[in-house]
Design a protein around this nucleic acid. Structure first.
Lengths: 247, 247
DNA sequence: AACAAGGTTTCATGGTGTGAAACGGAGGGG
DNA sequence: CCCCTCCGTTTCACACCATGAAACCTTGTT
């Protein structure tokens, strides 16, 4: 049962240190060491390396570590010219203006989903970049879409993953997903976050492969279950049009 | 003359691989190996590590490597709630609306400058995130501002850095910087990019320390030298107001 | 079929990352 | 003022683990 890891431990550790910064923006050396379960001196050495390349910097006031400008630089190049989502922003803005709510695009990554594009509701507080946030694949309207419209074998692979919440592995949940697949959209009402609701529909590429989930989200007092089912066709329609723009 | 490096070589190499993606979005293993001067098998192992943590992914169509979603995730957390530039966006938008040109914020990082915030001219082609791009500190209006208003010892340290272009190490250049410091702003006309011009002014924090350069840039047929000197006061004023918002 | 051009795996070797321990330095409480 | 504590930094011997040459696959091309 020898599991051959063909990865480099030192690099794994350095990347884990970087990932700690998704749970807080400022960390001291000892905090990082504790969080990663590494020796202080090891973390010190890895941080020196990360800092030397600009992936991490020290806040001169607090003396703690922050993410460095290289992260910003890399993210600027992540959104490349041929990014398929750029062409979809127009359609997302139309939907935002039509419904007055925030519109997002989610794709699946292993057992999570990532918001890869967003158009904020006009009244929303300005935030620089919620794009990139990770959410669990087990709750929320877009999660259900991403699961329901996945090929059946990847779906079952995900549901049987040891890390998948055991409470959501029953037949009732699968039936709920089948229902979503039949309806063509999914909703969530105060499922992940109290006071929030969302409607989501799948975007398929030309090849018929699931590309992303288009989600409209807002406060649950505006997006009541009735309102959501009433607005679903608009979202499904937008998702269809967006799919046609792909490839 | 023993130079003790207290960094981790394997991590340095992995980060260098990531940095290659600032010069292009898609790379094959052999291309990366060539670019980094490393053995194929080494790059393969490092890429496996980066991929396992989501920092890199393979494009399923081309089989080449791209930046992974973890980059997006980290960048989302880079722009944190206490990001000082967020409070400055309002002023930047006012300036954009007043002058009709793109407004950017640059800070210095070693011998380069990084655009850390931007408000696009309304007529500009939509681009997702030019924020994060790196430009040389040797050309452009904001470069001159960042140099001219730096403490005199850091300025001389930069100018005497072995990596600094030798052609810009003469007394004439220093005099130009002194002139910028006296005028309170700098301009550039088709200096870095043909057809482009810019005006820049310094933003100082409460403590009087240089925080960033505020730049207004546009096509050189609109931003002629006369127009720029006419508009300079507006930019200097905005930079002053923005400085007052800091801390 | 033979070949070329990528990517992947193997494996012996010694360089290199590791972590215990010791050091330094900045508060802060007695 | 001194002692103590809490961090960050440096040192160093050892074992381990990253390394790269070479062999092996896989895919597409001539």
């Amino acid at each position: 049962m020898e599991e051959e890891k063909k990865t480099v431990r030192a690099v794994e550790r350095a990347l884990d240190i970087l990932l700690v910064f998704t749970t807080g923006s400022e960390w001291s050396l000892t905090e990082l060491a504790a969080k990663c379960g590494l020796h202080k001196s090891t973390v010190h050495r890895l941080l020196a390396t990360l800092e030397e390349r600009g992936f991490v910097m020290r806040d001169e006031a607090t003396e703690k570590y922050r993410l460095g400008l290289r992260i910003l630089e890399l993210s600027a190049h992540f959104a490349r010219a041929d990014d398929p989502t750029i062409g979809l922003i127009g359609e997302m803005e139309k939907l935002r203006d039509q419904l007055g709510e925030t519109v997002s695009l989610y794709i699946r990554d292993r057992l999570e989903r990532v918001r890869i594009q967003a158009v904020q509701s006009r009244q929303a507080i300005r935030r620089v970049a919620q794009v990139g946030v990770r959410l669990p694949l087990s709750v929320g309207a877009s999660s259900k879409v991403l699961l329901a419209f996945a090929d059946s074998d990847t779906r079952s692979a995900l549901l049987n993953d040891p890390a998948w919440p055991a409470g959501l592995r029953d037949a009732a949940y699968e039936r709920q997903l089948d229902e979503v697949a039949a309806e063509g959209y999914a909703t969530s009402f105060e499922e992940r976050e109290p006071g929030a609701a969302a409607i989501a529909a799948p975007i398929f590429g030309r090849s018929g492969k699931l590309f992303a989930a288009l989600a409209v989200s807002g406060p649950s007092n505006r997006l009541t279950p009735d309102v959501m089912s009433e607005r679903a066709p608009a979202i499904i329609g937008a998702a269809k049009r967006m799919g046609a723009l792909l490839d």
